[in-house]
Design a protein around this nucleic acid. Structure first.
Length: 573
RNA sequence: GUCUUGGUAGCUCAGCUGGUAGAGCAAUUGACUCUUAAUCAAUGGGUCCAGGGUUCGAAUCCCUGCCAGGACACCA
């Protein structure tokens, strides 16, 4: 345990005093709660017969004490409400301990309490709870960041991203907009689930531990199963499993899937992230475009009550239908170059002319994608379905009905970012096997993200899969857009962080010192003087240390006998 | 992976060309019975991220490392 700060020490002392007064700072019994802050504020002065005998619990977020009366801001899961606490009200008898000592001195900002009383409006016009009784429910031992706000301006916001992400619980306590983001995230997911369920599609779970990480091109995490003695991969996508289920005869299946990719991290990538994938039998990608735009329209309406949403400074309209355009058409539009029908060499030359970097491992598909990524993606601000991708980039997708070089695939771009990806799924098992083999050839060429061959998936297709359309959508990215979050870390409760380095505990180090004959009473003094281990002790100047220890004994106001020189010298033997 | 910015009290931040570590909020003690960024008075609180170096002297300058943010690269 690291050394306690002054404020932490004071809170621990308060905790001990509470116990001494016979108050359990962490009581076991449930506390009856029959009111919520937001509900009171919404309904109260309108009907002032309500809430005249309530019981509410929450965290103390601020206190304004004026002698025998005090105001407290209590925060529950719905928000904050002011308490009015009057000494003679909570202490009607002679004994004023509960107010003078417990409330005023032993309770702090951050403590969790329950109160009973009635709701009224103060002279200043604020709906408040007139407290009749107060119960300590949990003593907080660490001081919270103090965030103040007036007229919508926030002062001293708790803003250090490292602290916010590492200690999300603190972030949630003091930053109400953070809580709101995660409420919205749940709304989005629930709305999607409802939309799918209404149409009779089945929510399923597929394996996270997979022996062949298929369904996408990405570097996987590797783990090991001891009993089977085999390596397994954390899933990078669930696509191949969901399609097996369509083979199995379901009309539609979907899964909110946590995926893991062992790649770089930045503002839009976390090693684990959530995708929703859905597969529907007897549909094609044209149907899926309508399905997706309707879904997004619904989500926007549910969240914002309108299809017009401000995303990262752009006014985005999620009103269906969205623009639909083939990839080559968009390239032509942006660059004037018509890449359709070009061979690999011509494409390489086109890239050169357009200033797009290439390398030897890139095939036709990747070259076209490079041009598109460089020149077009960023321009697609309003929701746009980009359709008909080159076959080489889409090994799981059905060939285009009118052009065998292309696939029936679309990606949805919003604000220049990919949001969703969908196919008319490839259900020709022989074609599928050939495409897997082509991927293998690419991986031998050095593309370490080309796919593994999943022979069981091919076997499943050999039994016959109905024509199917599938779609995947990045939930984290969708939530970012719908909530205006700038960073994926703002829509993940616990974004990945490097582990904190915890200092070695002072107890452990103290044990090292006493083991070498140092008097226990002097261990904290030595530690204060910077001597943490016996190793440290041997390297310092003994005369200086002896003097320092004497001085520190006074400074720390320690009630131990002064250190004798012989006693001190003995430590060094 | 490369570049770049930052790390100082519980929180938010100052700290100039190197010279005794500061403010606001929070905390402690006191005053105050309808306040609301409550107010007023007094007080305490620091391994200046870590380790080296330069110097009479380093929060400050140099090097290395750790952590975080941003940009780029890679990547769906």
């Amino acid at each position: 345990m690291a050394e306690l700060s002054e404020q932490e020490q004071i809170r621990r002392n308060s905790l001990a005093e509470l116990k001494k007064l016979g108050i359990n700072p962490y009581p076991a019994a449930l506390y009856k709660v029959d009111a919520e802050a937001a509900d009171i504020l919404e309904r109260f002065p309108k009907d002032n017969t309500l809430f005249q005998d309530i019981s509410i619990a929450g965290r103390i977020m601020s206190r304004r004490i004026m002698g025998a009366a005090s105001f407290v801001e209590l925060q529950d899961h719905t928000g904050r409400i002011q308490l009015y606490i009057k000494r003679d009200e909570i202490c009607p008898e002679e004994d004023k301990t509960l107010y003078n000592t417990v409330f005023k001195r032993l309770l702090d900002i951050g403590d969790i309490i329950g109160v009973t009383g009635y709701v009224f409006v103060t002279q200043m016009g604020e709906t408040s709870i007139h407290v009749k009784s107060l119960t300590v429910l949990s003593k907080s031992l660490r001081p919270l960041p103090i965030v103040k706000e007036k007229d919508g301006v926030v002062y001293d916001a708790f803003s250090d991203p490292e602290l916010r992400y590492r200690q999300r619980y603190v972030d949630l306590i003091v930053n109400p907009q953070v809580r709101e983001t995660f409420v919205q995230r749940a709304l989005i997911v629930n709305e999607m689930r409802q939309y799918f369920n209404e149409q009779g599609y089945l929510e399923v779970d597929t394996p996270v531990l997979q022996s062949i990480p298929g369904g996408a091109a990405a570097r996987p995490f590797i783990t090991h199963h001891n009993a089977l003695d085999i390596d397994l991969y954390l899933r990078i996508a669930n696509e191949l499993y969901l399609k097996r289920l369509i083979v199995g005869g379901f009309k539609g299946v979907y899964e909110f899937s946590r995926n893991f990719r062992n790649e770089g991290m930045d503002r839009t990538h976390n090693p684990e992230f959530t995708c929703m994938e859905i597969y529907v039998a007897y549909k094609d990608y044209n149907w899926m475009m309508r399905f997706v735009e309707t879904m997004l329209e619904r989500i926007a309406m549910r969240l914002h009550g309108t299809t017009e949403v401000k995303v990262w400074g752009n006014d985005i309209s999620f009103k269906a239908p969205f623009r639909k355009a083939p990839m080559v058409e968009l390239i032509k539009e942006e660059t004037g170059v018509d890449v359709s029908g070009m061979d690999e060499d011509q494409l390489r030359e086109a890239c050169k002319q357009l200033g797009v970097e290439t390398d030897a491992t890139m095939g036709k598909g990747k070259l076209i994608d490079a041009i598109f990524g460089e020149k077009c993606e960023g321009k697609l601000i309003q929701p746009t379905f980009v359709t008909d991708y080159p076959i080489e980039m889409s090994p799981l997708c059905k060939r285009h009905r009118d052009n065998p070089e292309l696939t029936e695939r679309f990606e949805l771009f919003v604000c220049g970012k990919e949001l969703a990806n969908a196919y008319s799924e490839l259900n020709d098992p022989i074609d599928q096997l050939g495409r897997f083999q082509e991927q293998l050839r690419l991986s031998e060429k050095g593309d370490d993200e080309a796919m593994f061959i999943d022979m069981d998936f091919v076997r499943a297709l050999e039994y016959g899969m109905p024509p199917t359309s599938g779609m995947g959508i990045g939930i984290d990215r969708l939530v970012m857009m719908m909530t205006g979050a700038q960073s994926i870390q703002d829509v993940l409760l616990f974004p990945q962080m490097k582990p904190e380095v915890h200092e070695k505990s002072t107890e452990d180090e103290g044990a090292d010192l006493t083991a070498h004959g140092v008097d226990e009473a002097w261990v904290p003094v030595l530690q204060k003087a910077g001597v943490k281990t016996y190793e440290d002790l041997k390297t310092v100047n003994p005369n200086k240390l002896f003097n320092d220890l004497g001085g520190l004994r006074k400074k720390m106001k320690l009630d131990i006998p002064a250190l004798k020189r012989e006693q001190f010298d003995a430590w060094f033997n």
